Computed example of a mutant assay.
Amino acid sequence: MTPVPFSWLKIFGIYGLPRAIYVDNGNPWANASNKHRHTRFSAWLLRHDVDVIFGRPYHPQGRGKLERFHRTLKLEVLQGRSMTSLQEAQGHFDPWREVYNLERPHEALDLGTPAEHYRVSEREFVEQKEEYQYSDRYQIRRVNPVGQFRFRGQVYRVREAFQDQPIGLSETQTEGVWDVTYCRFVVASLNIRTGTIERHQPRG
């Protein structure tokens, strides 16, 4: 079982689970040295039915709202301050957060506040998840401790993010190409003609 930081468990326990998280390509979401990208943490999110959507590498404009937030935080809280402890830093963050979320009008929200638009997720967080059950359309394989599985006499690797977990394989409309699915999410494409497995590229 992948250990998950207590802070995430606490946050999801209070605010519920999102349907998706839009992330960059760095830790803890992605492994830059892993062509299949997923980490144990992002696999944990998939297992809890949270879609992990990766932004385009080196395109921070795709996360413009977050980058704008960071700019404001740096300008109004961090710039010109030297903080010597987490407690001191939190003492600056807390009052600023109240103003940012509850008092300050935001032009992007028609001069409303973030608190007026935020809703707690209705998706309850359950820490212990039962093993996902695949339908009959999938051929099931279990990933070994080093991230490998065997299919039609060949060994393929989807990395350690899915170690000791079942995955489902299903044929696509392209001859010889199979989708590799983890829970309900396609995480890789397997080409049995070339004997290769690659990061999944959404079709459309």
Rank of each mutant, 00 (worst) to 15 (best):
G13P: 00
V177H: 12
E160P: 03
H59G: 04
K74L: 02
Y134D: 03
G55N: 13
R199Y: 15
R19Y: 10
S82K: 10
F149L: 07
G26K: 04
L111Y: 13
F6I: 05
D179R: 13
Q201N: 11
W178K: 02
P57H: 04
E103L: 10
A32D: 06
P105D: 03
R141S: 07
R159F: 14
F12G: 00
V187W: 01
R97I: 08
M1D: 12
T84M: 10
Q148T: 09
E67S: 06
Y134T: 05
G153Q: 01
R40N: 11
L66Y: 13
D179L: 03
F54T: 02
L45M: 11
E88Q: 15
A30M: 08
W44K: 01
V186K: 15
E124W: 00
G112Q: 14
G80F: 05
G168Y: 00
K129P: 01
R137C: 11
R104A: 10
I53N: 03
A20T: 00
A89F: 15
G153L: 08
R193V: 07
T181C: 06
H38D: 15
F185N: 10
W178S: 01
E160M: 11
F41A: 10
I11T: 14
R150N: 11
E131V: 15
L45R: 00
D179P: 03
M83P: 03
T39Q: 10
A20I: 00
P145I: 09
M1E: 07
Y22C: 09
L111V: 02
R47G: 10
E127S: 01
P114V: 05
P105L: 08
R150H: 09
Q133M: 12
Q128D: 15
Q148S: 13
L75F: 11
N144E: 06
W8M: 10
F54Q: 07
S135G: 15
A115M: 14
L86I: 15
E127W: 00
S135N: 11
G64K: 08
I140P: 04
H92C: 13
I197C: 09
R104H: 08
Y22K: 05
Q148P: 06
V99W: 13
K35E: 12
T172L: 09
Y132C: 07
T174K: 08
Y134K: 09
D136F: 11
G176N: 05
K74Y: 10
L73P: 02
S135L: 13
N191F: 01
Q90W: 09
Q61H: 08
T181F: 05
E76F: 08
V180I: 06
R68M: 05
Q133T: 11
P28Q: 08
M1C: 14
Y100R: 06
L46C: 08
R37I: 15
P3T: 11
Y58V: 10
W178D: 02
L45Y: 00
N31Y: 06
